[in-house]
Design a protein around this nucleic acid. Sequence first.
DNA 1: GGAAATTAGTTGAAGCGACAACCACACTCT
DNA 2: AGAGTGTGGTTGTCGCTTCAACTAATTTCC
Lengths: 163, 163
Amino acid sequence: MTTRWLTPDELRAWTSFVAVVELLPRALETQLRRDSNLWHFEYYTLAMLSEVPGRTLRMTDLASRTNATLPRLSHVVSRLEARDLVRRTPCAEDRRAIDVALTEAGWEAVRQAAPGHVMAVREAVLDALTPHQVQALGEISAALLTRLDPNGAMTAPYRPPTP
Amino acid sequence: MTTRWLTPDELRAWTSFVAVVELLPRALETQLRRDSNLWHFEYYTLAMLSEVPGRTLRMTDLASRTNATLPRLSHVVSRLEARDLVRRTPCAEDRRAIDVALTEAGWEAVRQAAPGHVMAVREAVLDALTPHQVQALGEISAALLTRLDPNGAMTAPYRPPTP
DNA sequence: GGAAATTAGTTGAAGCGACAACCACACTCT
DNA sequence: AGAGTGTGGTTGTCGCTTCAACTAATTTCC
């Protein structure tokens, strides 16, 4: 079985895309660390909690909303807990599970970090694109996610709780 | 100055895109480590060298082709050198500079790793998109790079040497 | 009812990347 | 010529992510 090498068009697209994937995280990281003393992933974790009713999520749910593995999330939650930005409590329904809740301080931290982060996202990404391109980027990303995470285990969108 | 929050369309696009940026590196990393015992960045470094006449580049040039900072590249080159995949030699024209050359073993390593990596890239990205979307992704990425790296310091495309 | 298999989460070791400090060489300008 | 500035690159430390191994609770299934 012989390799299908990249066409010039594909190569051009791929090269640029790889550079973006390499550079974008650094840009976001830099802004958040400088302005809010938070890593991007920490911010994202707090933000996911802040958007959910009760500001509380189980580790597994939180991991899938933040596209993270469980060990990674566990370490991060430990660090956030040490800074009193989140709190762990045993889950009532399932004694294996852990609920992670945003504290008041955590809520404040997201509120303060959000405007700067949104501005950075606008500057680096959204405002660099036409509305049509933003739309296209969304569709492309969604298509890629069906390959990267076929059963959506790590990319749970917000869904209202099912009773 | 009040924050321009994301519109629903922007939010949807951004959420998916963030997930891709988070997940794609892991996917490429996993395949390359499993099949070729190489980190993605190591592969990319070897690949950049392999495409250039003489299979040799100065550290700074190599850094910009791989979207890397110099300290990072320096560490990686040290590791690759320890495995005899590249070799450092002082640069003749500028005694501050260092030439990095691909060894025979390095060349072999790229040749063996390339097919699997290209296939992974196809499976995860290119074959998940229509040709039109690939085109669009290229344009979008190029637009983003003008923000992420305005003067192209970290994203040098291949240019024939200027005499 | 109990053994086996899954699921939820934690922990510790190992390895990579970022940052700052640093050395060496080259260029500029008087 | 020599001081000052800039460029090319390396090194060490620190923090984060990954991986594998592990504990504990739950479900499955005979």
